[in-house]
Design a protein around this nucleic acid. Structure first.
Length: 423
DNA sequence: TCTGGGGTCCTAGGACCC
DNA sequence: TCTGGGGTCCTAGGACCC
């Protein structure tokens, strides 16, 4: 059997890079993208990183730096990022027959069967340059016999400019050299908690982890960390997964623009999340067996003023009908509602998801599916596929509770009215 | 004043069954 | 009052990922 060779492509500063694609005038400017509600920084351009803007910092704490260095600020625009992501994944298909999209901005791809590719470094640059030229997003590429090593290689491709953004770790000697200089926190699967505990065992580098007794790792940290260590040794434990299993739950929630004590505002917010979650569930062809609604006051505030609640309901017949889901959501909300608190977050979770291929029939309660419901949902999904055209009354009209998005870029690629004009 | 949103898996413990 | 092994299902909590 020939050795496996797995590639990993990972976009550089993805959200920030997306914003720059349509603003070439900002190519060299420091730029940050904010979380929902313009709360904190979730993506930074290279220039912003160089200025020392940390990941996750709240906007209000970098007001000075923004003024002093003229940092450009953008609210997040997921329609734009999702669309560019799709284009990148499509492009990658030209380079590998087997792709696993791992997140919005990264994908593993298997080159094991591509015998004509022998110079991986050259191939990596080919991919990188093609994506930069056709889509405008800079990416890093790494190759290795396991996913965990490919991840580590990709880290190195970003960290060491000398690599030019491409790292080939197919050779064990190179793997070992990188393991020795990689701190534990660069390893995929090692978070802060594990790092601190491993540090006490005198495990400080990726090489230390790879060399440690696997049985002790398993006993003290579980099977996944043991696998991570094996993967660092070049032994494949996390294989490619071209068709990731369908999601088991779908959550939609948000922080509100302003805390509110108004039942109506929270109800509208919950209804909107329900509609969005149902839409995304139908896109996957799934049905919900359960719905849960939750809301809470600001968790950072004084605990005396804290109230949060959640309540779930099971469906006898799993459903994807937004009208049924909305009815349940509002019902649940009414049951746990309390006046006089100021709520800042609300959302909905659809779970017990089943594939929509014939609902299990109950011997005694025959369930007749209403074909009109299906048609109605299809029609709504089509009309709303690019931007929202029609909605349920429960979603509200004024939407005063909506998250702040003061710095949003236009939806260049997904909204007709925002399409870029060429003079 | 202002602190994201959306997921997964593993493990331990309790209830319950034979 | 004490004694046993095995299994399932559920839940909560903790860890990780982007």
């Amino acid at each position: 059997m020939s050795r496996r060779i797995i590639g990993l492509i990972d976009c550089n500063n993805f959200f920030a890079s997306c914003e720059k694609v349509f603003r070439p005038d900002l190519a060299d400017s420091p730029l940050v993208v904010l979380s929902n509600n313009d709360g904190c920084v979730i993506s930074r351009s290279a220039e912003a990183k160089k200025l020392g803007i940390p990941m996750g910092i709240p906007l209000f704490r970098i007001r000075n730096e923004i003024d002093r260095y003229n940092i450009r600020v953008f609210s997040c625009n997921f329609a734009l990022y999702g669309d560019l992501s799709k284009r990148i994944m499509r492009t990658l298909q030209e380079f590998s027959p087997c792709i696993e999209q791992y997140s919005i901005d990264e994908a593993f791809f298997d080159l094991t069967s591509m015998k004509n590719v022998t110079d991986y470094e050259e191939y990596g640059f080919k991919i990188k340059n093609h994506i930069l030229k056709t889509i405008g997003i800079p990416v890093s590429v790494a190759f290795a016999p396991t996913k965990t090593l490919a991840k580590l290689g990709n880290y190195a491709a970003k960290k060491y400019p000398k690599t030019g953004g491409v790292v080939n770790l197919s050779d064990p000697a190179r793997q070992n050299r990188l393991l020795k200089i990689s701190p534990l926190e660069d390893v995929w699967g090692v978070g802060r908690q594990y790092r601190e505990k491993l540090d006490r065992l005198n495990i400080k580098t990726a090489a230390d982890l790879a060399d440690y007794d696997p049985q002790i790792l398993r006993r003290r940290f579980g099977v996944n960390l043991e696998r991570t260590a094996s993967e660092l040794n070049g032994e494949l434990c996390f294989d490619m997964n071209e068709n990731p299993p369908l999601r088991k739950q779908i959550m939609h929630s948000s922080t509100l623009g302003q805390p509110t004590s108004s039942f109506n505002s929270i109800k509208e917010s919950v209804c909107n999340h329900t509609v969005a979650a149902a839409e995304s569930m139908r896109r996957e062809g799934q049905l919900a067996g359960m719905i849960a609604v939750f809301f809470r006051t600001n968790s950072f505030a004084d605990s005396r003023d804290y109230y949060g609640a959640s309540l779930a309901q099971k469906f006898i017949y799993p459903t994807d009908d937004t009208r049924i889901l909305l009815r349940s959501a509002v019902n649940l909300l009414k049951q746990i509602w309390r006046d006089h608190y100021y709520y800042s977050k609300a959302g909905v979770i659809l779970s017990d998801l089943n594939e929509n291929n014939g609902i299990q029939l109950d011997l005694f309660n025959r369930h007749e599916e209403d074909p009109r419901a299906k048609n109605l949902m299809n029609l709504m999904d089509r009309l709303n596929s690019r931007e929202q055209q029609i909605f349920f009354l429960g979603q509200g009209i004024s939407r005063g509770w909506k998250a702040n998005k003061d710095y949003k870029s236009p939806s260049y690629t997904t909204r007709w009215s925002d399409i870029l004009k060429v003079k």
